[in-house]
C-alpha cells in the first residue's frame, strides 16, 4: 500500500477531518532534506511489497525510513543517501531488511494538488494526495520543479552522492522501548494491570494499520466501567478496548474516541513505533513532560543541522548543472 503523504493536514479536525500524513514523519523529513526539499514536501510512503518506479526523466532522489533493499536497474543502492538517477532508470524494492515504512522523496517535490493545504492522501474521504487513493500500476506522477540533471550524470545510470545521515541518530531504531506519558484514565487501571503494562512485552498484532496498532498482552482491567464521553484523541494515544487489549492510535486515527486513554506515546518515539510491524514486540516505559519535550527538541535540532549541511552541498552540485 503506497500513498502520497506529507506532514499532515492540521486545522480541520473540528469537522471530523483527521490530520493523516506520514506514519514516520521524521523519516519523511529526512528524505526531503537529503534532496534539498522543504522538510514538509509530499513524499511517497511505501509498504512492502512496494511499487516499482520508472523514471522518465533524470532526478535526485532519496529513500529513508525502512530498508527494503532498494536497487536501481538491478544494482543495490543505500538508504539515507541522495542518489542521482538518470532517465529511464528503474527503482525496485526487494525485501524487508529493517523497518516497516520507507519514504521516497524527489528533488523539487511531487506534482500533486493540495487539499486543505496538504498533499496527504485521505483514503476514507477519497481525496488528497494522488487522486485520493493508493498508488496503482501505470500511475504517472509529475515532478513539481523538474531540474535538468543529465549533465551531472553523463552516461552513468545513477550516482550515490557522498553525503549521508547517520540513520540511527538521536534515536536507536532497533530499540524496543517506547516512552509514554500517563493518559487521563491511567488511574482507572488495577494495580495488577499497571504491573502488566510495565513488566510485559506487547505484541503488535496483524490487525494493525495506518489507523492504529492493536496490541496483544495479558488482558488489562479497570476499577470502574464509568463511560468516557467521546473526547479528542491523538497520534500515539494508547486506548484500552472493551476486551482488555490496547490499541495505539497512528496517523489515520479518528479525531475523538470514547475508550479510556491509559497513556500517550511521546512524539519523539512516533517514528520508532511507525517502523515496527505486526509480530514485533516492545515494552512501555513512563517518562515526564519535560523529558518528552527535550527529546523532541533534540530531534528537531538534528534535522536543522542536517538541513544546513545538505543545503550547502546541494547548492554546489546544482550550480554545476545550471
Amino acid at each position: 500500500m503506497d500513498t502520497v503523504q506529507d506532514l499532515g493536514r492540521y486545522g480541520w479536525q473540528h469537522l471530523g477531518i483527521n490530520p493523516g500524513g506520514a506514519m514516520d514523519k521524521l523519516s519523511a523529513q529526512i528524505a526531503n532534506i537529503l534532496v534539498g526539499n522543504d522538510p514538509g514536501e509530499a513524499v511517497i510512503e511505501l509498504h512492502f511489497p512496494s511499487s516499482t518506479f520508472f523514471f522518465e526523466q533524470a532526478s535526485l532522489i532519496a529513500v529513508s525510513g525502512a530498508d527494503f533493499s532498494a536497487t536501481i536497474n538491478g544494482e543495490e543502492v543505500p538508504c539515507m543517501r541522495p542518489i542521482l538517477v538518470n532517465k529511464y532508470s528503474i527503482l525496485q524494492f526487494h525485501r524487508i531488511e529493517k523497518g516497516a515504512r520507507a519514504y521516497l522523496a524527489v528533488h523539487g517535490g511531487l506534482d500533486v494538488p493540495l487539499w486543505l493545504n496538504s498533499s496527504s492522501t485521505h483514503l476514507k474521504a477519497e481525496t488528497g494526495g494522488y487522486k485520493g487513493r493508493v498508488l496503482q500500476k501505470d500511475d504517472e506522477i509529475g515532478f513539481k520543479r523538474p531540474v535538468d540533471l543529465c549533465s551531472l550524470l553523463g552516461k552513468k545510470e545513477f550516482e550515490v552522492l557522498p553525503w549521508k545521515t547517520d540513520s540511527n541518530w538521536g534515536d536507536d531504531n532497533h530499540a524496543k522501548e517506547i516512552l509514554v506519558l500517563p493518559g487521563h484514565e491511567w488511574e482507572r487501571l488495577t494495580g495488577h494491570s499497571k504491573e502488566i503494562f510495565f513488566d510485559r512485552a506487547f505484541l503488535i498484532t496483524n490487525q494493525s494499520d495506518r489507523m492504529g496498532y492493536r496490541l496483544k498482552s495479558e488482558p488489562l482491567s479497570t476499577f470502574t466501567n464509568e463511560e468516557v464521553v467521546s473526547s479528542p484523541v491523538s497520534f500515539g494515544t494508547v486506548q484500552l478496548l472493551p476486551n482488555g487489549q490496547l490499541i495505539v492510535l497512528m496517523a489515520d486515527h479518528q479525531t475523538a474516541g470514547g475508550y479510556p486513554r491509559v497513556a500517550h506515546v511521546i512524539s519523539a518515539h512516533h517514528s520508532r513505533l511507525a517502523q515496527m510491524k505486526p509480530g514485533d514486540l516492545f515494552i512501555f516505559r513512563f517518562t515526564d513532560q519535560q523529558t518528552a519535550e527535550e527529546l523532541l527538541t533534540k530531534q528537531h535540532q538534528h534535522l536543522l543541522q542536517l538541513q544546513n549541511a545538505c543545503k550547502f552541498k546541494l547548492d554546489e552540485l546544482l550550480n554545476a548543472c545550471n
Binding site: Y10, G11, W12, Q13, H14, V229, S230, S231, P232, S234, T255, A256, S267, Q289, Q290, E293, E294, L296, T297, H300
Partner: peptide, 30 residues
C-alpha cells in the same frame, strides 16, 4: 496548531518546539 471541540471537552494542539522556544526551555510547552 489547531483546536478540536468534542461533547464536553476540547483539545488544543500545539507545536511544542515553538512554544518552548518562547521560554528558552525554562517552562514546559504544556
Amino acid at each position: 496548531k489547531e483546536v478540536v471541540p468534542a461533547y464536553s471537552s476540547l483539545a488544543v494542539y500545539y507545536n511544542a518546539i515553538d512554544v518552548r522556544k518562547k521560554h528558552n526551555g525554562s517552562m514546559t510547552a504544556f
